[in-house]
Nucleic acid binder design. Structure first.
Length: 355
DNA sequence: ATTCCACGGGAATCGGTGGCAA
DNA sequence: TTGCCACCGATTCCCGTGGAAT
């Protein structure tokens, strides 16, 4: 059924971007001056997750570089320090810096080594730790800044006047990306099917069903199509049938969650299992349970149990990853796992019994 | 009105890594 | 080679905030 697995990979970049023509024009307008050694423009790219913000900007940069030699940097900001981000920008621009260069020196390097129009993309700019990076980039004259974030007003509100000024002038634009319509996403899935599935494995109506069900989130739609093909193959269908599509969403969502859980360290797994085995729990119950089993669970490991404050951070992370959720406030906040059947792959041998 | 307490931002701290200069 | 410095990621410590209980 599946003829090319890579087509469904998370980081697969299709040759042709569909339904983003207007957006590509905006980026071309912003980037193109750099090809003539004129300053490029700032673009604030924003929109909900899973709509292809990163892929879009990467595409635009590739287009630009096909026709011109423009220095560019593309940095993942989430969870990185100011120094780490500056370091990677310099690295992308071909400047060698030592791993322990002080942050202040990095800033000087940035200003001195940028001697012609340059484009710096800050992916996941919601996660920018401080404003320092932005100020440094604003002060470096020839640098155009392209932050990618979820919520533009919110992002701008958290910056300062200097940065806001930079993004409100005529030499900058906001570029909102919306979710795909059912028809658009179905077209995108059709292209994936043509490249990655056997001919006639899926029909248009089924693709539209998937596109509708995933509410325009491309990432989820692509994983669902993949799951539908797998399920059809397991059931020895020669093509995807409606029941296969119906059962694909659960598998896709579950797979995304399992991958998320897999990527987290041990502490998260302990907390996840405590919540999963305890039905619905409140914070004090979770902490109490943690204290009770911590000695046993961590015995023989090189890690030691963590304090309450850290546990709160881990719980937040588990929620960000769609693994748990909660409702309510204070000690009445209740926690539960999103999928009871998803167990931690790590053996957290907490006693199952009494709470 | 006062007390209790979970929350979550931010500063301080710790152990480890890697340049660099004496 | 040795000591020093800056960084990093993870964690703990500290504390203001605000809702609920008393």
């Amino acid at each position: 059924m599946i003829t090319d697995r890579r087509v469904f990979d998370e980081d697969f970049v299709p040759r042709q971007l569909q339904h983003r023509g207007d957006e590509m024009s905006v980026l071309a307008w912003a980037f193109h001056p750099a090809a003539r050694r004129d300053p490029a423009r700032n673009v604030l790219v924003h929109g909900p997750s899973g709509v292809g913000k990163t892929v879009l900007v990467r595409h635009a940069l590739e287009r630009l570089r096909e026709g011109a030699d423009v220095p560019t940097a593309f940095v993942e900001c989430m969870g990185r320090s100011t120094a780490a981000i500056l370091r990677e920008i310099l690295d992308d621009l071909g400047v060698d810096v030592a791993a322990n260069t002080p942050t202040a020196d990095l800033e000087v390097q940035l200003r001195e080594r940028v001697d012609r129009p340059t484009i710096v993309v800050l992916d996941e700019a919601d996660g920018l730790p401080e404003l320092d990076v932005l100020r440094y980039l604003v002060e470096a004259d020839d640098v155009a800044i392209v932050p990618i974030c979820h919520d533009a007003p919110d992002w701008l509100a958290r910056t300062d006047d200097v940065v806001r000024q930079e993004f409100s002038g005529p030499s900058s634009r906001e570029l909102p990306l919306s979710r795909y319509s059912v028809n658009e996403l179905a077209n995108i899935l059709e292209a994936r099917a043509e490249n990655g599935l056997r001919h006639d494995a899926v029909d248009r109506e089924q693709l539209e069903t998937i596109a509708d069900r995933v509410a325009g989130v491309a990432r989820f739609g692509i994983q669902s199509l993949r799951a539908a093909a797998e399920i059809a193959a397991e059931r020895e269908h020669t093509a995807i049938r409606s029941p296969d599509v119906r059962d694909s969403f659960e598998r896709a969502r579950r797979r995304i969650r399992a991958a998320n859980l897999d990527s987290l360290p041990f502490h998260h797994h302990v907390l996840y299992e405590i919540i999963r085995r305890g039905e619905v729990m409140t914070s004090p119950e979770i902490h109490e349970r943690y204290e009770a089993i911590a000695d046993d669970v961590y015995r023989g490991r090189d890690q030691t149990p963590i304090g309450e404050r850290s546990r709160r951070n881990k719980l937040q992370k588990l929620r960000d990853y769609d693994l748990i959720d909660w409702d309510g406030e204070n000690k009445y906040r209740e926690f539960w796992v999103r999928d009871e059947t998803l167990q931690s792959p790590i053996e957290v041998n907490a006693p199952v019994d009494e709470m």
